[in-house]
Design a protein around this nucleic acid. Structure first.
Length: 181
DNA sequence: ACATTAAGTGATT
DNA sequence: AATCACTTAATGT
């Protein structure tokens, strides 16, 4: 699966469980106008907790999943999913763990929305992306960053400018480089 | 050289 | 913090 490939759109019927073997998948919430809010990233050995509930009850997806970095995925069919639940305790444990960890990440997003200002959210976004991608260079335009944070481009531009003045970041076109602290 | 897209900025709400 | 209107800078053709 190559970069920017859309794995699941809002409203899609989910037929299986995506298990990320390698690469990174970005999971976002969408509103009716196509505005986006980044929920979390999935890395190797992780899976999307949303899909567990969705495909068991044939509920349509409430989130969008896009390949962030070239990824390999295993789609586990629903039947296997249920079968393994009974056969392998380790599978059950894995499912419970992912549900818990995704839930925690969701809480963190809620916390940020409720209690944090945009400058903090932007900074956390940059930090998190660096951690996930293993690179201190973010290849995204201000517009794209703004979309992930569900805000406007101008605001991101201004906040990034301030981060640059604080020496925390260096700005280029379509690129943000984090300085080592 | 010109058109297009990204980024910077002041003013307004 | 969002939106608008406008400018400036970078990039593609």
């Amino acid at each position: 699966m190559h970069r920017d490939q859309v794995l699941i759109e809002v409203g899609d019927v989910v037929h299986g469980i995506p298990l990320v073997v390698s690469g990174v998948v970005r999971v976002s919430r969408m509103d009716e106008f196509g505005n986006e809010l980044l929920l979390y990233y999935l890395q190797s050995g992780q899976s999307c907790a949303m899909s567990f509930t969705c495909c068991n009850q044939k509920v349509r997806s409430q989130v969008k999943a896009v390949v962030e970095e070239d990824a390999v995925l295993w789609w586990i069919p629903m039947e296997k999913f249920n079968e393994w639940m009974n056969i392998f305790p380790s599978w059950k444990t894995f499912i419970m763990q992912t549900i818990r960890s995704r839930f925690m990440e969701l809480l963190s997003v809620v916390d940020q929305l409720a209690f944090k200002k945009l400058d903090d959210r932007l900074w956390l976004f940059l930090q998190n992306h660096a951690k996930i991608s293993g690179s201190n260079v973010l290849h995204q335009s201000h517009e794209e960053i703004a979309q992930h944070l569900a805000t406007s481009r101008e605001v991101v531009s201004r906040l990034l400018k301030r981060l640059e003045q604080d020496g925390k970041v260096i700005l280029y076109r379509n690129e943000v480089k984090l300085r080592d602290v």
